[in-house]
Design a protein around this nucleic acid. Structure first.
Lengths: 362, 362
DNA sequence: GCTTGCGTTGCAAACGTTGTCATTACAGCG
DNA sequence: CGCTGTAATGACAACGTTTGCAACGCAAGC
């Protein structure tokens, strides 16, 4: 007996439905998908849909994927690192991705970047995005070699600029990169402080090796230099993106002989720490010192004082990334390989900045 | 000309590799998968693997899924609601899911629960889990009717107890449910306070309609009643799971004529608010009042004073859920339909509780 | 009445991989 | 030398859906 040939009645598929109704599978297929439903006569369509509903029919995703060569799913690769869901950056970006994907009827698979040392980076990415039609990479920073490896990747993908090494020019790489315009953001917030009359401005910067930190630093320095207001060396402090960095850095700045009237921070968390240390040291913000952040995270408006900061347009970023993937996957021919796409980062002016007090002017 | 018949050289598939090496697709298939690799001669296997690597071969997920009838991917359904990634509960559960899945070589698709009013709940779930082999539901609470609808769901799935209505007994439903043993957790922490000598104990409870809040309330009340220490009505306050609830509730308690020496909260956030309000009102915690939370979230140890609380074993919960899905998907025959599986919730004794001061004893 | 066109349907060929079965070659053994 | 067992491979049939093409019926137009 060559296997049970009993036209498996319990199975629910397009052919079973077709058999039950005496039509061909083609017709059922057409009736059940919105984009081809108009091809089948109304009463017949109704009968098909009713039976499908009754049988709890759900199309076989594998067959569909095989046939169509793609999938309405994209993969986002995040670092395994720690509890990424509590991070401002990843949390907001992921939420944006979910939203943008859902709006297009797409699903999102989230994978943690696990480095099985045996295989190449490209292979690892292939494995992670096996079941999906595209990849958004926002995990750990990539080496130039890894970026080259990605060239052979056979699926649409997008990198975030934050994952690129500090000194590579995204325009030269031949891979699609999206990012935030840190440079303009930093410039504009430095410019605001200058307009408010500040000249002695400290910098609490982010970690070496972080491209975002680097770009923000460039923006701050460039603008301050143009105004002839370069900070004294002891007003500059660098550390990880954490409140602790802000606290330590601010404390050190406050110990110096000459004191700045404003401080630019590499992100909001550092700024929180700075505000905190300032208060502990008897300085009020913004009265005695103006402090600006970068991110506009959920706490920026919730804290005291509400933080003047640069809004990282993470939702827009996610929307853009998803848009690129979906377009490339849907329409593989017209592959517009965006070299770099920097999203503008607007300034949010709140309560942690104020004009320089006349008393502090010299 | 009936389509280009040119043995598409640019395509990379198992058959192309086979053709290039003069072997059959079967052999290539066997060579490329670890579980069958031993069947093919060593030198041949090496040649195949090398060529596959060189051609950036990646197996067609659709074909594989069609053939094998499943997929190493599961879907987690979360509420669209708000920024779920910043919530203690969802963030930790999702991280646990990613971890547990990755350990098994599985991927995780995260879908937001979008209610397209047109279709039934089951249809919505089918749509969300189209491309995956199982479903973990932890979105909005379900109505009994929706739970019934799920019965016809043709994929392995698991519900979290938190999504069930307050008054349904998970044992009676014929669906797999996992959850935290809120009752024992609440009992044990109430018991701790009693052992420390407290008799006047207030309750800051969670929102009506939340099963977790309900169960914790039951646990607290049950234990206090057994000790003959039922709280006065004005010591009981309910509200959403937020610090605000804790602040308001604690402030009201402090205004009353008689004051409790300890307060049980429905979760950590409420406890934070309570500590906050206590301090503002001039009560020190734990010196003047002991306060306990529920969750053991990331802030429980970071705050002042470190919170005595019940640890929600969310990582274990996620591990369990993933394990059930993977097992059911891998081995559909032996479907052990776990009715209810309550995970124990251990107590973390920290600095927000202390023995009743003799002065407060009466 | 014949052509033309349209609406509706069926036929059949993919899509790429996997597992079963059959086949071959070769070693070991009597 | 013939038999048996094992290792290595190939042939081939699924898996369920989609879609180009052909076919059919029927109405409209000449």
């Amino acid at each position: 007996m060559p296997r049970t040939r009993a036209t498996n009645v319990d199975k629910t598929g397009i052919v079973q439905i077709a058999a039950r109704l005496g039509v061909s599978p083609s017709t059922v297929s057409r009736a059940l998908r919105p984009e081809t439903a108009h091809l089948v006569r109304a009463d017949r369509r109704k009968a098909i849909m009713d039976l499908a509903e009754k049988q709890h029919f759900s199309p076989n995703a594998g067959a569909r994927m095989l046939r169509k060569g793609m999938n309405a799913t994209l993969t986002v690769v995040v670092p395994l690192d720690e509890n990424i869901f509590f991070s401002e950056y990843y949390g907001r970006f992921l939420a944006g991705t979910l939203h943008a994907a859902a709006a297009r009827g797409w699903g999102v698979q989230i994978s943690t970047m696990r480095r099985n040392a045996g295989s190449s980076f490209r292979e690892a990415m292939q494995l992670l995005s096996m079941d999906s039609s595209g990849l958004i990479y926002l995990a750990e920073p990539l080496s130039p070699q890894q970026i080259q490896e990605l060239k052979g990747f056979r699926r649409p993908f997008v990198l975030t600029k934050s994952t690129l090494p500090e000194h590579t020019n995204p325009g030269e790489l031949d891979v699609p990169v999206i990012g935030v315009d840190n440079l303009s953001g930093a410039r504009s917030v430095a410019s605001l402080l200058l307009q408010l009359g500040h000249r002695r401005i400290g910098l609490l910067l982010g970690p070496a090796g972080s491209r975002d930190a680097h770009e923000r630093k460039q923006g701050y320095l460039e603008m301050l230099q143009k105004a002839g207001a370069l900070p004294r060396p002891e007003w500059i402090y660098s550390g990880p993106f954490s409140a602790e960095t802000g606290r330590v850095g601010m404390a050190r700045i406050m110990q110096g002989p000459e004191r700045p009237t404003a401080v630019c921070c590499a992100n909001d968390e550092i700024a929180f720490g700075a505000v905190n240390a300032a208060h502990l040291g008897g300085w009020r913000c913004p009265d005695d010192v103006s402090i600006v952040g970068f991110d506009d995270g959920i706490w920026a408006t919730a804290c005291q004082p509400a933080l003047t900061t640069i809004r990282q347009p993470l939702a827009d970023l996610a929307e853009r990334a998803v848009g690129l993937i979906v377009e490339a996957a849907t329409n593989p021919s017209r592959s517009r390989r965006v070299a770099l796409d920097d999203m503008p980062a607007p300034m949010m002016i709140r309560d942690s900045t104020r004009p320089l007090r006349p008393a502090d002017r010299r």
